[in-house]
């Protein structure tokens, strides 16, 4: 569909792999990472338009990664994904500057819409 560079970060490969596949099938240029640390390494080397980040991960979790991205790579929009609906975490994420906070399971087309919207950075007049 669109040429957008996307980084997907999730420690569960059962979730990560199929999502990457579906995104690629839609023509999205995407890379996967299975930990916050791995994502940081990738982000240091490459620019991404959007990072889709799982909130709950061992080690550097989604919110830690979000903090890092806002500080080091502010041009990358962050979409948080979570399997556990938590108001507390959601608020934290949004206050830290996430573009969106979505609940799993997420529809790929919906995710793509959000990613495009996030990377567009357009405002209504």
């Amino acid at each position: 569909m669109a040429s957008i560079r996307m980084l997907v970060v999730d420690d569960e490969s059962e979730f990560l792999e199929p999502l990457l596949q579906r995104l690629k099938r839609r023509g999205v240029e995407c890379t996967g990472a299975t930990s916050g640390e791995e994502a940081v390494e990738l982000l240091k080397k490459t620019d991404y338009d959007v990072a889709v980040v799982d909130v709950k991960m061992p080690g550097m979790n989604g919110l830690d990664l979000l903090r890092w991205i806002r500080r080091e790579k502010p041009a990358t929009a962050v979409i948080l994904l979570t399997g556990h609906a938590s108001v507390e975490l959601g608020i934290q994420g949004m206050e830290l500057g996430a573009f969106e906070y979505l609940l799993k399971p997420v529809d790929v087309d919906e995710l793509l819409d959000v990613a495009l919207r996030a990377s567009a950075g357009l405002k209504l007049p």
Binding site: A75, S119, A120
Partner: peptide
């Protein structure tokens, strides 16, 4: 969120 780099 400025995305100046992605004009292409």
């Amino acid at each position: 969120m400025g995305r100046g780099g992605f004009l292409k």
